[in-house]
């Protein structure tokens, strides 16, 4: 029990109803107790250590798009074609994820403007089955790109995923080439593709559309990599270097253009869209 809950529980005037669990949160990085409202007002960034907390797709839309954006429908895909079950049925896992999330799968697109510049913004939500890429994510990515092509604007994706959705087996792996077909079509249309790598982005997502941006942005401290750290450690049996697979490490190794603080992200995207504006052939 933390000192805070001890104090809180000792105060008779405060019962559980008055102190919901989410009133205070603990920074997962520095352990600081933060007043939830203030943390959210600070874009879910810890004011003490600058840890960038994971945020939902809905919050991300609100942070990056100008008011008045439209959330695009999530395309329907075949559900559980492998009839997969591990310790639970995949359909039950999907139901549970849908019950606690506002959108029907891990990738949702919205169309709107960023400081006035038109864009389609796709956001992967780690809260939905670890953001994992299955057919719904692949299909939504393609739909987001198609919308951008139709609107002649850029496509921006905020990635967050443990990797491919294992419950869809090989069909999840096939989303890697599928999404790459989409990024190629966007490029053929002469439209910008910007990737914002957020915590965490690993596995098949990193090894496909998350690494193909015209401009690659990473959020500070985000874990970004191909192989999982435990897998690497089991393979090489040595200690991983400090900051391994973090945004700053990727920047040092030339894998991303920039590491951008969340408070500057919207302005950065607007600035980049300005540079990547489509020029009609003369």
């Amino acid at each position: 029990m933390s000192w805070l809950s001890k104090v809180r529980n000792s105060l008779s005037s405060l019962n559980k109803r008055d102190t919901p669990d989410n009133l205070w949160i603990k920074c997962p990085s520095c352990g600081e107790m933060l007043f939830a409202q203030e943390f959210e007002a600070n874009l879910s960034v810890c004011p003490r250590c600058e840890h960038h907390g994971r945020i939902t797709a809905k919050t991300r839309f609100e942070q990056l798009l100008d008011a008045g954006f439209n959330v695009l429908p999530t395309p329907e895909v075949p559900e559980n074609p492998l009839n997969f079950r591990d310790t639970k049925k995949y359909t039950d896992r999907l139901k549970a994820a849908r019950a606690s999330n506002p959108y029907p799968d891990a990738l949702t697109n919205a169309f709107g403007t960023i400081e006035g510049a038109k864009a389609v913004l796709g956001v992967q939500d780690f809260k939905f089955m670890g953001g994992s890429m299955g057919m719904a994510v692949g299909e939504a990515f393609v739909a987001g790109v198609e919308k951008a092509i139709a609107e002649k604007c850029g496509y921006i994706i905020c990635t967050a995923a443990g990797g491919a959705r294992m419950q869809e087996g090989i069909l999840s792996l096939m989303q890697m080439p599928k999404t790459t077909v989409a990024t190629r079509r966007l490029a053929a249309a002469g439209l910008p593709y910007i990737v914002v790598l957020t915590d965490p982005t690993t596995g098949g997502v990193t090894a496909s559309y998350a690494m193909l941006g015209d401009v690659q942005i990473a959020e500070p401290g985000a874990l970004i990599g191909f192989a999982g750290q435990r897998v690497i450690q089991d393979t090489i049996r040595e200690k991983l270097p400090d900051g391994f697979q973090r945004a700053e490490y990727l920047h040092d190794h030339g894998m991303v253009d920039m590491v951008v603080h969340r408070k500057d992200l919207k302005a950065t995207l607007a600035q980049l869209l300005g540079y990547l504006e489509r020029k009609e052939a003369k």
Partner: peptide, 25 residues
């Protein structure tokens, strides 16, 4: 693909993504 420090350092994910893209192109 090899899961190791040097592979990550040199951009394993990007190399795979670009190779997939090269097939499609």
């Amino acid at each position: 693909a090899f899961p190791g420090i040097e592979a990550e350092e040199r951009g394993q994910a990007e190399a795979i993504a670009r190779s997939t893209e090269a097939c499609l192109a």
